[in-house]
Write a protein that binds this DNA or RNA. Structure first.
Lengths: 194, 194
DNA sequence: GTCTATACAGCGATAGAC
DNA sequence: GTCTATCGCTGTATAGAC
């Protein structure tokens, strides 16, 4: 079992790694325990020891993902750069996943959400909430100190930005064309420039 | 069998209707012939008469969808409104699907594309190409006659707009919050205003 | 064009040995 | 913690009667 507040280690971590990549590329309904087991050269039964059900696996993955993402955001906060640089670092987190060859984990799960177990739906919602709250704060701070300029509520901007990034990953991944992602980031940034 | 260039009628059309809604809400891997059969009160074997394989069904659906969408775009072209109104009518096509309770058919399939049969992948790509080409033309015409104003290449703008709309549908559908879609349309429109 | 019946592969999941 | 073996179910798909 996994100690509370700690990331799984050993085989459990490897399972999460493989499952994460499978979900990013094929979706939750697009991979099976057999796929993961074959890739790790273990048996399906061994996976069920670590994650009794597929939804347990999915929820553990979402928990790890949220923890890691929150840590990345905290790192950006601690870097002491201005608001625009923070926004760019934020888009960079998305871009890194795209360059690694996959769709955003939670973007993919959002598309499938009606087929997901309830616990996973909540995990996906929490991820987006985290994104929006962090970005809203950055936008508000940037507008307050004059380094950013935009119309309307910061929260609406943050939501539009996250939606734009998700759509950008979807399209750039589908066409295998990173410039489609860059174009969206570009127009996002232009809309915030002081 | 379906006559070339004509939409399927009768049971085949009903099958496509149900499959379309299932893909929009649950994805291609999220529904089965059994689901469709139950909803139409027929047997699975009956579905296989109309569409021998699931990929045949998917490809027929994409063909009908492309035909209908092209007809909607032609209708906008023929309406004689200015470029901004055409863009709004375009976003309205997406919004109508969202209000009907689903994700964009091809947006959903784009997320799953690595698990799709090759013929369906091509169909999805053609849909996005059609979107981009039409919107690029509208943006160029609008800039030429002064009713729109924006920086950069029209094609890049069109691609960003389509990506934004896809992401907006994804997020608005997930949170069941139409205002998230409207916010994205709003910022899209603002970025084009002369 | 729809039905019953069935084939066969893959799925998530469990029991129990090591 | 991993294995072999197996279960029950669902998936796509087919044969052949009506």
């Amino acid at each position: 079992m996994v100690a509370a507040g700690r990331e799984p280690a050993g085989t459990a971590a490897l399972v999460l790694d493989v499952a994460e990549r499978h979900i990013q590329t094929r979706g939750y309904n697009g991979f099976s325990y057999a796929d993961v087991a074959a890739e790790l050269s273990v048996t399906k039964a061994s996976l069920h020891y670590h994650f009794p059900s597929k939804s347990d696996l999915g929820e553990a993955l979402l928990e790890r993902h949220a923890t890691r993402f929150a840590a990345s955001l905290a790192e950006i906060d601690d870097s002491g750069v201005d608001a625009m640089e923070k926004v760019l670092a934020f888009t960079g987190l998305y871009g890194a996943v795209l360059r690694s060859g996959g769709m955003c984990l939670c973007g993919m799960l959002a598309a499938e959400f009606r087929t997901l177990p309830g616990g996973m739906q909540d995990g996906v919602a929490r991820f987006f909430d985290l994104n929006e709250e962090w970005l809203t704060r950055v936008l508000e701070a940037g507008r307050a100190d004059g380094t950013l300029d935009f119309e309307g509520r910061a929260r609406d901007r943050a939501r539009s930005a996250v939606a734009g990034l998700e759509g950008a990953m979807l399209m750039a991944g589908f066409f295998d064309d990173l410039s489609r992602f860059d174009s969206v980031v570009e127009s996002l940034v232009e809309g915030l420039r002081a």
